[in-house]
Design a protein around this nucleic acid. Structure first.
Lengths: 335, 335
DNA sequence: CTGAAAGCGCTTACAG
DNA sequence: CTGAAAGCGCTTACAG
């Protein structure tokens, strides 16, 4: 590989001069500038980014840990973060844990090795030691969507899950439903707890009793939504409306619904957290809570760069608004 | 930051010994091993990954260039690639060009700086100089899904777009359609050309004439599909069946269809390349060609690692099978 | 099994 | 404006 020394030799200058020409900033005489440029051209020189990172002390990389990049919400967050990164001359290193906490730990360990300048976390498990080390090592970190309870000082960008859930469920109640169910998320996940709390609050406020068996915890993935919905639908008495933790679980739930020939919304009303391009075209169109995923990602990026630039961001909690899309998957109860 | 020298000092050994303990491989006496481990613990030492990359001459990173990670096909490819990467102790650096060729060039330039050990390309434009430089610099590269015409020697992982398209269109013809349209992809994209060719071949074989105005080129993104479908539907005489270049365009097409109260499949039959979780639930369920996106990504990873391990991969062309899902969006023509 | 030392390929005060 | 040189923090022959 041709190195900066080869270029310097060919141009008859020092490596310092080559670096100055290539990186700009410091002035270099036109004469030498041209000689360097020509040598670069002739030798087809490309600088070594790793070496540059080492001496500069920064990599120009933002780390993003996600559970599954194929989740549409996650992908949009990634896009928002990436666009913000590009604006600052950065790139994003996305790692999917696939809900595997060991893989998550490996990714965090790798981030802690300063392979990235800052980290955004949109991960599933409570994480634990991995994040703590990241922070002890002084790597700017931001949580996206949710944050483990014991890390309150780390900034967070999110929506208000609790009130959005409460509002959606109140919508169902206003329609006349009195027997509601929920396909919930994993118990350890803060947003799962919040959405469930919103669900319960709305029911409690309306004086409704929630039957324990109507609340099923679905592990993430469509399969989890399918299983949970099967359990709900196979109850001796079905609830007349179900609230789903997110769009992935909702898709699984739809499979269960179809399999049992349950009609939506005649037999069952359905509302879900997280929207999708195709929800308006589903039979029937799915009523959903939209989160501004792209903006969440962008906001996380802004926080990270503010921190990189020396700003104090501890304790920041950015809350972005949700939108409720009323479509065709809800109706008044049939009984 | 605590460095390997601090650890060496604290443990009373050389930095070489610390490295040996931490990286394994070379044997170290139990006594020193323990001292090192204790020092690491006490100092909360985390090695610097960038420095390690520089001296090892490898970063443990695979670069993946995509147009849009939010495209479900792309996301699945990324997952397949990533899982393969993890199997080899690697991570994936995903960069979205967002269909911007300047951004694409920047990403390729960054990859060429050896910030990654190998590269998988799933990008939109013909690319040009960026890829050429990558290859001149000896960075193992693989194309995914499509490859610019002049880079035939670089390995490629793909499906057979032409015959899959032909088969899907023949299905429409067998249903009795004689006036077909297509929402095509950007003219410069090889897969767009191939799917269009498949469409034309099927029509020609059946002796059908394709009206030029029934073939619209949609720029990528749902908006492009919407516009293209609008043009088709606003023709004085509508075709009775339309074949869509991919799922994203199909979603835009559905918007146009809905807006005009066209009924699928009664007024119009629709088939699209690329499947989606939700297509079975759309009204009506969308008939689609599924590509094994995850496997495509995994296969690309295998090729890259084979090449990293010294194997010769030039000229490789891996073709994976598609699956045709007949659902409810096609019927015999109504007229 | 171990350490001194060179080397990876840049960047950047420092002195001129 | 310019170059010699130190330094970024590891890894790895080399000699013992």
């Amino acid at each position: 590989m041709v190195s900066i020394r080869d270029v310097a030799k060919a141009a008859g200058v020092s490596t310092a001069t080559v670096a100055r020409v290539l990186n700009g900033g410091t002035p270099v005489s036109p004469d030498r500038t041209e000689r360097v440029l020509r040598a670069v051209q002739e030798l087809d020189y490309v600088s070594n980014g790793v070496a540059a990172s080492l001496s500069r002390g920064r990599t120009g990389l933002l780390g993003l840990l996600v559970s599954d990049i194929a989740n549409p919400f996650t992908a949009q967050v990634a896009r928002g973060l990436e666009d913000e990164a590009v604006r600052h001359g950065y790139q994003v290193l996305i790692a999917s844990s696939d809900f595997d906490s060991e893989r998550e730990a490996q990714v965090l360990a790798s981030f802690a090795r300063r392979t990235v300048d800052a980290v955004a976390l949109l991960s599933s498990s409570g994480v634990g030691e991995g994040v703590a080390r990241l922070i002890r090592n002084g790597i700017p970190t931001v949580f996206v969507d949710r944050r483990p309870p014991d890390l309150g000082e780390i900034p967070l960008v999110r929506t208000d899950s609790l009130s959005a859930a409460r509002e959606a469920v109140r919508y169902l109640i206003d329609l006349g439903h009195t027997d509601l169910g929920m396909i919930s998320g994993p118990a350890g996940m803060p947003t799962a707890a919040q959405r469930l709390a919103g669900f319960r609050e709305a029911c409690a406020t309306a004086g409704l009793v929630v039957r324990p068996k109507c609340v099923r915890e679905g592990f993430l993935g469509t399969q989890g939504g399918y299983t949970a919905m099967c359990e709900v639908l196979d109850l001796p008495v079905r609830p007349t409306a179900v609230f789903s933790f997110n769009n992935v679980l909702a898709i699984g739930a739809l499979e269960a619904v179809r399999e049992r020939d349950v009609r939506i919304p005649a037999d069952l009303s359905l509302v879900t957290f997280d929207d999708t391009d195709l929800f308006p075209f589903v039979d029937p169109p799915i009523t959903a809570i939209e989160q501004p995923a792209y903006d969440i990602g962008a906001e996380a990026g802004k926080l990270l760069f503010a921190r990189i630039d020396g700003a104090e961001t501890a304790g920041t909690d950015v809350v972005l608004p949700t939108r409720f899309h009323v479509r065709g998957s809800c109706d008044r109860p049939g009984r």
